[in-house]
């Protein structure tokens, strides 16, 4: 059968894909390795420049020597692989500990925000497109367009003001209460309570875009000939809407989802700051403020590697969703 030959061809093209991504990852790593050498300003100046402590030349040299990058690029990669990412100047803690401590919170926040906004946006978009030109649909499109235009910094502050400061339904900062309630369920409830505001902000920020994109994509799909075929087949409306139409409207939404995921870490920065959420965004913000070079270096490198990984995963997702991409050469 010709299937075998095809499989092999797939394999080869996949290998190419993997190789491409690996190369990109290497280039990223090299940039992050080389970057500190070009950056203006350093930790010593940032910390002691404005302080009353005056360093002797000897002390300063020792401090600087301590921060001088050591070893070549190969050594650097080896350290990366061993999670030996250096020490934070400010926290005096291994960078890996800082990063891995912050990452789960960001993943939780961004992951749930993306998934919720995508599901809500998609379903609402599909239903709106199906009711095209109705009053509801027109109202929704108008409302969502306005909402899409409001930056998350704005909604974030408003939500914080109304629900945390005025109504006091949710805490204003943090991801969990220190020394909080014992027990798994109590802990979970606590986490959700802390999550609610930043999550709400992000959902409000992302959901209108997903809605509009789905609706527009769906409006085009509904006009396609194969939807007419599905109607002619006498299929139930729900099946036509979701199995036949929505499936084909999914692609741009997944695309957007992927691009958004890539901004997972940097995108969270604003919201994490507003709600003082202890994620990677907050970590990066603090590190930049203190010129904490090893932290900046690693956050930037890891974000870019995550972006790469997401794109790689997306490439696969597309192939599953749209068979035409699978066979495009």
């Amino acid at each position: 059968m010709q299937g075998g030959a095809k499989e092999k061809r797939f394999f080869r093209s996949d290998l190419g894909l993997v190789a491409t991504f690996c190369l990109a990852a290497l280039v990223m790593s090299w940039i992050s390795y080389a970057l500190p050498r070009f950056l203006p300003g350093d930790f010593v100046t940032a910390t002691y420049g404005a302080s009353q402590v005056t360093l002797t030349a000897q002390e300063e040299a020792a401090l600087r020597a301590d921060q001088e990058p050591q070893g070549g690029f190969g050594h650097y990669l080896w350290r990366l692989a061993r999670f030996d990412w250096g020490y934070s100047y400010v926290f005096n803690t291994p960078v890996s500990v800082l990063f891995l401590g912050a990452l789960p919170w960001t993943l939780l926040l961004m992951g749930s925000a993306h998934i919720i906004s995508m599901v809500i946006g998609f379903v609402a978009g599909v239903e709106a497109a199906w009711r095209r030109n109705s009053a509801i649909e027109k109202g929704m499109v108008g409302g969502m367009t306005v909402l899409e235009g409001i930056p998350e910094i704005c909604t974030g502050v408003i939500l914080l003001f109304v629900f945390a400061l005025q109504l006091q339904w949710f805490p204003t900062a943090g991801a969990e209460t220190a020394y909080g309630e014992p027990g798994f369920l109590g802990h979970m409830a606590d986490v959700v309570r802390h999550l609610a505001l930043p999550l709400g902000t992000l959902v409000l920020a992302y959901f209108p875009g997903n809605f509009l994109l789905t609706r527009n994509s769906m409006v085009m799909v509904i006009m396609a000939d194969y939807i007419n075929t599905a109607r002619a087949k006498g299929l139930p409306p729900l099946r036509i809407r979701y199995v036949h139409a929505a499936r084909n409207a999914l692609l741009p939404v997944v695309n957007r989802f992927g691009i958004r995921l890539a901004f997972m870490i940097t995108g969270a920065l604003v919201v994490e700051r507003i709600n003082s959420y202890p994620g990677v965004g907050t970590l990066l913000y603090n590190a930049i403020a203190a010129r904490d070079l090893p932290v900046i270096q690693m956050v930037v490198l890891m974000s870019s590697l995550i972006i790469l990984a997401v794109f790689f995963a997306l490439e696969w997702a597309y192939r599953i969703i749209d068979p035409r991409i699978r066979h495009a050469r």
Partner: peptide
């Protein structure tokens, strides 16, 4: 009635089949 009593072959070929 659709498809069970009256069925239709549409024009435009491949565009009338769901690409997915």
């Amino acid at each position: 009635i659709r498809w069970q009593k009256i069925a239709m072959v549409f024009q435009n070929g491949a565009e009338t089949l769901n690409p997915s």
